[in-house]
Amino acid sequence: MGSQLVHLISLSEKHPDPAMRRALEQCLLDLRLTVDSMDAQDESLAVLLARYRHRLQPVLERQGMSLHWDVWDPEVLGESGCLPRGTMAREIMAVVQEAISNVLQHAQAHEVWISLAATAQTDTSSVFVHACLSIEDDGKGLAQTVGQETGTESFTGMGLLNMRRRAHAIGGKLEIQPRIGGGTKITITW
């Protein structure tokens, strides 16, 4: 399947259709991420994010987008606590993937920011550190993209609703808001 997608992408270079090429690249990225996730049953969020960056960076570059990456990992820094692993990490990654998919398909963005930072809140009853992960873009913004007011659930498709469900499933919170300077900011905290 992957080789067929690569072949279709090369054919699209001979007969340029930017929308088709973006769709094919998105399919190939999704396929690669699916294959990556087969081996990632108990890996930490930091490892999953690093693997995702490796797959995402070339796609963004081909589309003329810049990726700004600022991901904190307490284990690498020798700090106490650890980032989520297993099911919780995979649910967070599904939110990230859906957010980036929306950027690639709808935002007409030039820049994307992915950042992960510890929150000031501490809770000794949790195995995992509390953190905030944000995905931002400088695109046309969510309300303009779907022609609706932000904050409503009447958007076309199920992506935003699924992101909210995933955040809720891990006991987290998802916020979707306009980004200062234009675009959209999606934040998941746990």
Rank of each mutant, 00 (worst) to 15 (best):
D70K: 11
S10N: 08
G86V: 09
V129L: 09
G2Q: 12
T152R: 10
R90F: 00
A46R: 00
L28P: 10
E149S: 14
G139F: 04
P18F: 01
E13G: 09
G159A: 07
G139N: 02
L83P: 06
R62H: 13
G139K: 04
Q97T: 14
A23H: 13
T152I: 13
L133G: 03
W72Q: 04
V47C: 06
Y52M: 10
K140F: 05
D42F: 06
M88D: 07
V129F: 02
V129E: 03
F155K: 04
A89D: 00
L142G: 04
H68E: 14
L24R: 02
A107S: 15
M20Y: 01
L174H: 04
A50N: 08
D17Q: 06
L174N: 04
T87E: 12
H110G: 15
T87A: 12
S134W: 02
R166F: 08
R21Y: 01
P58K: 06
G159M: 04
T34D: 12
V103N: 06
G172S: 08
M20V: 14
V129G: 05
P178W: 03
Q26I: 15
T184D: 01
P16I: 06
G182E: 03
P16W: 00
H68G: 09
Q177E: 15
K140C: 14
R166A: 15
T156K: 11
E175R: 13
L29G: 07
A89C: 06
R53V: 10
A23K: 12
T124C: 10
I92Q: 00
C132G: 11
L5T: 07
G172V: 08
G141Q: 02
A23S: 15
E153Y: 07
V47E: 05
W72V: 09
T87H: 12
T152H: 09
V71D: 00
G139W: 00
L11P: 02
R32F: 05
R179P: 07
F155H: 10
G151T: 09
P74E: 03
S12A: 14
T156M: 08
T184W: 02
I92N: 01
A169Q: 10
P84F: 01
W190A: 08
P18H: 01
D30I: 12
L77W: 04
V95G: 03
G171F: 07
E136F: 03
E61V: 12
P178G: 12
T34S: 15
E91H: 11
T187V: 15
L142K: 00
A19P: 04
I188C: 09
A23W: 09
H130G: 13
V35P: 03
H7M: 09
G78H: 04
E61H: 11
